[in-house]
Design a binder for these strands. Structure first.
Lengths: 274, 274
DNA sequence: CAAATAGTGTCTCTAAGACAATATCAC
DNA sequence: GTGATATTGTCTTAGAGACACTATTTG
């Protein structure tokens, strides 16, 4: 009877079939919209990073950034590496939203993917400039129920509009899951991954998770409120919003200036463990 | 330039290294404790299913049930198949708690694992009897901070006591993560997986998720309260507990009988979408 | 002053926690 | 009646939402 050392020497992993494993990143950013009147606060839009595929399969379709897991890294490190490689921007947060493992989800073969929500601030994206002809673009997001109860996911960048249709699945428990009715031209099962990620983002934003990651180091209360309202697609009263987040932020001595109205105090996120 | 069909014919998956993928299941059950006085309600314990490994590596150590992903199934189907194979019990719920992908987590090589929380009712486990000499046993769980801030995970079944020590990691965001200081004799990184799963279970039990899955179809309010208290390791006032869950349950016409005290009305879980 | 946003005070309503009181069974 | 648990009522307090009001800037 062999001991453990002997066993490990003889162990052959090739005896079992193995899938390729990838990490896909659903990278969110909140963008301020153009504005003609300098005195008005600009509206904000939730956007999502898509990359146009240069090769087969789904050539010329838009897809999530992502790539194959290497043997020397964790799936989180892989996700971080891929998003940095493809955008030169380091996201602030990265949170897993599950493993997508339907055997036929990729026409190339058995390839399963762990999806991540990542949040990037507009500030960081601007620093990295990025030319307009690039194959990586931030798409405006709309995601809502239609009359029949299905979800419509609309992603738009200039004249390009992708419109996917999804049904809510009664999952075994807890997390809601989606089934693709129409992929809207998105590659693979990425419409489903995006819907799942968006649901996770909204669920987290409810108790103010992630919302700070969309903003620079210091920010105004109105900016913070805009982030939450944009993500959740709701609107709340400023007085009540302030009360609720007051425990999570601390004042600075700085104010905004030259906005054509009363200056706003800048706040900083309070250290959670302090 | 090849078209998509041509590309897929020529695509070779073997060009990239691939890991083996497994599903590990953290199966929880709440067990009523023995009682000498028939008039007293019995206390309850949270327990967890472990399997004694028959082969290398970690031969004779206790480990989570689980097994390799097949090419024709999703990871959820794999988890369900494995738990049924190893216990002949079909769990009520199954919820992913993340992918564990440290390259060196398995001495056999590159093997990554998706972990699941699963909940099984004592009723179902009893139906399946299960002989006492089996290599699968339900261990009592204790999980709490010690003075230095580390977490102590104690698993005990008769004279067998496994005691693991873990540190809380400051993770990128949201979910708390654990690092193993002492595995306590558990196989692989299973101490870490168990700690993560237990944290997810507690977090869900806060708003009454999962708690119904531990009980039979009909149950008393006291039983339901016991489930939550046992999971969260807290105690609440009956009046307040009733108020909070009242919207989630509906009455039946049945009562408990012969308990030596006032009979309790039996309730049923209310259909969530109704 | 007008336009526009920043920030405060306070009323109401609901939900959570604490606690007291009553109900019903087996023996 | 006694011991044990089941169930209801209500007081107090904390927080959420609504809304009115005041403050401060630029042109």
């Amino acid at each position: 009877m062999p001991d453990e050392k002997e066993f490990l020497k003889q162990y052959r992993q090739d005896d079992y079939p193995r899938p390729s494993v990838t990490a896909d990143i659903v990278a969110f950013m909140i963008r301020a919209q153009e504005n003609d009147n300098y005195r008005l606060n600009s509206g904000t839009r939730l956007t999502l990073l898509l990359i146009r595929r240069g090769g087969h399969p789904f050539k010329d379709c838009w897809a999530l950034p992502g790539g194959f897991l290497n043997p020397d890294e964790t799936i989180e490190q892989c996700a971080l590496r891929e998003i940095c490689e493809e955008t030169a921007v380091k996201p602030v947060s990265l949170m897993s939203v599950g493993l997508f493992s339907e055997p036929d989800r990729d026409p190339r073969g058995w390839i399963i993917s762990n999806a991540f929500v990542s949040v990037i601030s507009e500030e960081k994206v601007k620093q990295q400039s990025g030319d307009d002809a690039s194959d990586a673009q931030w798409f405006d997001i709309d995601f809502d129920r239609d009359d029949s109860g299905d979800f419509i996911l609309t992603l738009s960048y200039r004249e390009t509009v992708l419109r996917a249709v999804l049904a809510e699945e009664s999952t075994s428990f807890g997390k809601t899951s989606f089934r693709i009715i129409n992929s809207g031209g998105l590659a693979f099962d990425h419409a489903r991954i995006i819907a799942t990620a968006l649901t996770a983002l909204r669920s987290g934003a409810k108790d103010f998770e992630y919302i700070f990651d969309f903003l620079p180091e210091t920010f105004t209360m109105t900016q913070l409120q805009n982030v939450q309202e944009t993500i959740m697609n709701i609107s709340v009263l400023p007085a009540n919003f302030r009360r609720k987040v007051s425990a999570l932020v601390e004042e600075t001595d700085e104010f905004t200036r030259g906005a054509g109205h009363r200056p706003a105090k800048l706040y900083r996120r309070k250290n959670r463990k302090g």
